[in-house]
Design a binder for these strands. Structure first.
Lengths: 349, 349
DNA sequence: CCTATATACTGAAACGTTACAGATTGTCAC
DNA sequence: GTGACAATCTGTAACGTTTCAGTATATAGG
């Protein structure tokens, strides 16, 4: 144990956090050797490697993030970029937990980078890229022609999008199959005799607006039902706006007898609007809604729901980004999540 | 412009991100001078200072975080520590936005550090402190005798708690006045003739369980109403459990005619349980509930609500941590947020 | 004219890590 | 015995920043 060591590592065994120097002193090796031994480099003797790793574990060595980052440029950070006004509430918490779950036993940290309505959505991305603040980025509210995706693709920084783009460019994504959701919803409503359907869609600028809309109209013609246009509002509008517009719509002569709603909070507003107009859910009109936590059935048992799992989305997105960082082909890191079937209330719920 | 400069800064004007060396080269000064000029050190000439800052702004200089962190130990990171199972959903997104709002024009980044049911809540804190990963920490689910607060106080790392402790130790906190909430709720219920009240409390281990409970019982004796014990469940229990227990309770001979609920999601379950027992909200029983987003009135207009603003909490907590980091006295960084009055539904809602 | 002092600036060292270019040993072929 | 080669280890430099201990110049006091 008392091998030679260059006597200039004087206080390497000091009180503070152990560093490579500490380990070098304790093992009697050079810091280079210790560094390489810890990362299983081939030119280090098997016994030395084991010995170094044992000591490192014993004294609880943790590489200094700033040291690594300064030297290598690797930040070990994933950034989740969020809009502070328009994200669905449960989206934020669930996606964070999903991401966390995946990065839990990696050296990665998750930073949340918010941007507000007033800002260009590209701003936070530019900031991250220019300052080299993250090894990978996750964005939501993806658009068909998304400048953020294009920008990151140009700069070669790994990212994943929640939702797809449509620019002929390949990048990792995770998406919920909103086309399938809308078709299933329409089929279900048709199946219970509803013939005049309205869609509360995502905002037009987001890619999944088209997905939902296409699924909706395709299924309409499939089942021979008709559309009651309801495009004065989207799920991004306030509860009050949606409620008011719904009530207006329901007071018209030709009113929908079925709704497809792309978000749970919006569904509360739709139901309120329906009731404002003096109509009754389940009798005069049925509503199929996406939800991400199992609360809508408590709200009105007549509601028909389809579940979207944001935690899963977060996990998939994190896996994709890590995969890309790890050198996998971006095209192989895309996933689509199928909707559940349309669920009606049963007492056991 | 073409002043002298030591000819060894060869490629200081290279393509990459500008560093102090780049600035030094461009201004013809030494990196030390540039460094000090940027932070308004007094021993730098006024004109030099302006010149350096101008050039820095022009070329978009941003200090390298790794360099600063390695040299100074300052991470410029605030960590928000969250439980992945038991946080209230809107709490997560709102508090994140609140924190973000405050740190937006500071160099701070927000990292989210999650821990799960299976882990010791102290684990993530230990990790953060041992690896020096953050300059400040925000924790929630605070307990009267909170090992995390004690630990951080011992290590001297700035933090703020959402909720108070009761250990005789001083630290920054932000709390909602749950005592006032409970008293107001009871008074309101008594005011509309309710006499047998039940409290759905926070879990016993959290500090605000006592606050809510004390407010509840104090107000009970004040108004001369009686308590129907309902402590088999807390707001941490599942929707199903709360619903079932509520239904059980409501089928008993002596059942409550009023509820005070400490969380919105739990309130949905209470109402479901009430209705399971064949009773009607607003007629047989009234419920006063806290909520953090304005949705309960859509759910059942008979509900009585009190709002708690988590975004404000996040902002306050962030201000507190930054204040402590900045050298303010921890005792001066405590705040308590008063509940709104009890709000009944009005059509304009 | 010399010394003291203030002003404005500077290079070297250090934080912890990894990459590069060796250095030292032992083994083997000839 | 020599040279070649593999195996194993090592020191130095660099990433970008700040701190320390200066240096150079100008100003003022005597």
């Amino acid at each position: 144990m008392d091998r030679h060591h260059t006597e200039k590592d004087d206080e390497a065994s000091g009180q503070g956090r152990p560093t490579l120097k500490t380990l070098a002193f304790m093992t009697g090796l050079g810091v280079t050797t210790v560094s390489r031994a810890l990362k299983d480099a081939p030119e280090i003797g098997a016994e030395t490697r084991r010995r170094v790793q044992l000591v490192a574990k014993q004294i609880g060595y943790r590489p200094n993030r700033a040291g690594v980052r300064l030297r290598t440029g690797k930040t070990n950070v994933i950034s989740l970029v969020l809009n502070t006004e328009h994200e669905i509430m449960s989206f934020v918490s669930d996606i964070i937990y999903g991401v966390s779950e995946v990065i839990a036993d990696t050296p990665y940290h998750l930073i949340v980078t918010p941007y507000s309505r007033s800002q260009d959505p590209l701003d936070p991305i530019r900031y991250l890229v220019e300052t080299g603040s993250a090894d990978g980025v996750i964005i939501s509210r993806t658009q068909p022609n998304d400048p953020r995706a294009r920008y990151m693709l140009e700069r070669g920084i790994p990212f994943a999008t929640h939702g797809r783009t449509d620019m002929g460019l390949i990048h990792p994504y995770h998406d919920f199959d909103n086309y399938a959701f809308a078709t299933e919803a329409v089929r279900h409503l048709a199946g219970i005799g509803r013939r005049r359907l309205a869609l509360l869609a995502p905002p037009v600028e987001l890619t999944y607006h088209r997905h939902a809309l296409n699924g909706f109209t395709d299924a309409l013609s499939e089942v021979g039902a008709s559309e009651i246009p309801f495009n004065t509002v989207s799920i991004d509008h306030s509860i009050e706006q949606i409620r008011m517009r719904t009530a207006q719509l329901m007071r018209r002569d030709v009113r929908p007898d079925g709704f497809v709603s792309s978000a749970a909070a919006a569904t509360l507003a739709i139901v309120a609007g329906i009731e404002d107009a003096g109509l009754k859910l389940g009798r005069d009109v049925d509503v199929v809604s996406k939800q991400s936590s199992d609360l809508l059935h408590l709200f009105r048992r007549e509601l028909l729901v389809v579940n979207e799992d944001f935690r899963l989305a977060g996990a998939e997105l994190a896996r994709s980004v890590l995969g890309w960082i790890g050198g996998a082909a971006p095209g192989s890191l895309q996933s689509l999540s199928a909707p559940t079937e349309v669920l009606a209330y049963r007492r056991s719920d």
